[in-house]
């Protein structure tokens, strides 16, 4: 009998793999996860936002620590003529490094604000019991024919 032929077994296995892929993929969509396993879904969102905020704060601190170290080098160069490498670390390059750090700091500080806003947004979604809408929603601002400002 050909009921358990190799070809048929392989077809069943391939179909099972396909079904499993569809199920797993469906479980990862926000439409499914926000309804069926909402606690885990929001835990993931909030955890991600918390880690982002900590990372951005750390990057800001690292920049500030570098600025402090550069200022210290400048001060020691003036006071005791100390520099680890006169070719690369001299008064001109140190002053430039301070200015550059201060410019980058603006951006890094902004990233912290953005990360905190994102965390607040995720917490608000959880508080409101948000669920990913199922239907197709029109793109925001794309309904009218007016030019965007």
């Amino acid at each position: 009998m050909a009921a358990f032929s190799l070809e048929r077994v392989l077809k069943v296995l391939v179909f099972a793999a396909l079904a499993l892929t569809v199920c797993k993929g469906l479980g990862r969509t926000p439409e499914y996860a926000s309804r069926v396993d909402s606690r885990r879904f929001f835990n993931g969102l909030v955890n991600d936002a918390e880690n982002s905020l900590i990372m951005k704060e750390r990057h800001l601190d690292f920049g500030d620590a570098t600025a402090k170290a550069v200022r210290l080098r400048l001060e020691e160069l003036e006071r005791m003529g100390r520099t680890p490498d006169p070719d690369l670390v001299n008064e001109e390059s140190l002053r430039r490094a301070v200015a550059r750090r201060m410019a980058i700091r603006e951006r890094d500080a902004d990233y912290v604000v953005l990360a905190r806003e994102k965390l607040d947004r995720m917490r608000a979604l959880e508080r409101d019991g948000w669920r990913m809408p199922l239907g197709l929603t029109p793109r925001a601002g794309a309904t009218s024919g007016e030019a965007a400002p």
């Binding site: 835990n43 909030v46 955890n47 918390e50 880690n51 900590i54 750390r58 620590a65 402090k68």
Partner: peptide
Amino acid sequence: FDFLKYREVTRGSEAYVWGV
């Protein structure tokens, strides 16, 4: 330490410490 910061998340188990 010039400063030392400890940060942990409320959801999950990640914790970090950094400083100068």
